[in-house]
Design a protein around this nucleic acid. Structure first.
Length: 226
DNA sequence: GCATTAACCACAG
DNA sequence: CTGTGGTTAATGC
């Protein structure tokens, strides 16, 4: 069991804001908080899913084995639920979740979580909102992936990192070039080339692993034109 | 044809 | 892991 009380958790999910005191105490009795260091697997593809995972702190990559390469589906930062599609879609995990920074995760018993959904409409509604946004994000990604050229995809990825993940025009690259390649379905070489090209065009700068977006407008333009 | 895009391979740091 | 260069295949004008 976790040492802290869920009711007093200052990192509650948007959905959990709607739980009452009694529901929190049930949650608290059926939750376990686990720390992961960077690189550790939090959820493993093809294993049985027995609980819902809630990412309290840290950042993760969600990925799966494709026909030939590994495919990175998305990056997520705390606070967020992890693997809801798996929890409700199938008993078997259809993807893996790996920590890309140190993380803390709460694992919640699935049947307890299911009861919360049955009994609390507002809580459920917030989950649906999250699931819906996630689905929309992937629809958009799907269209981009099949229609944009590599520079457009790289631009899209960098803008996503900047706007959604770090909320900053300057950030430490959370993935290697190879992983970015796995994310947009190309090779590490292509990512490398596009990045160095953007550097020489002064659209971005990369020092060590810190990337700074110098010309957001140009990047947006590349992103849109594909 | 010629140019562009990107994959694949190999080698160096 | 990263950056580059050479080569090749596919596609478009």
């Amino acid at each position: 069991m976790s040492q802290y009380n869920c009711l007093d958790c200052n990192l509650k999910s948007a959905a959990a804001e709607y739980l009452n005191e009694q529901e929190f105490s049930v949650l608290h009795e059926n939750i376990v908080n686990v720390s992961f260091v960077k690189g550790e697997t939090i959820i493993r593809q093809d294993t049985l899913s027995l609980n819902v995972a809630y990412l309290r702190t840290g950042m993760v990559k969600i990925h799966m084995r494709g026909p030939t390469h590994s495919q990175i589906l998305q990056l997520e930062k705390a606070p967020t639920y992890l693997g809801l599609p798996t929890s409700f879609g199938d008993n078997i995990n259809h993807f893996s979740v790996t920590a890309i920074s140190d993380c803390t995760v709460c694992f919640i018993d699935l049947s307890v979580f299911r009861n919360l959904i049955f009994n609390n409409g507002r809580f459920s509604y917030q989950l649906i909102v999250e699931l819906g946004r996630n689905g929309l994000f992937h629809f958009q990604r799907y269209a981009s992936m099949s229609q944009k050229q590599i520079p457009g995809l790289v631009a899209e990825t960098l803008l996503c990192f900047s706007k959604k993940l770090f909320e900053n025009t300057s950030f430490t690259l959370p993935l290697t070039r190879g992983e970015i390649g796995d994310m947009i379905g190309t090779s590490r070489e292509c990512v490398s080339r596009v990045l160095t090209q953007m550097c020489s065009d002064k659209i971005i700068s990369v020092e060590k692993n810190v990337l700074t977006i110098l010309k957001p407008e140009v990047l947006e333009q590349i992103c849109e034109k594909g």
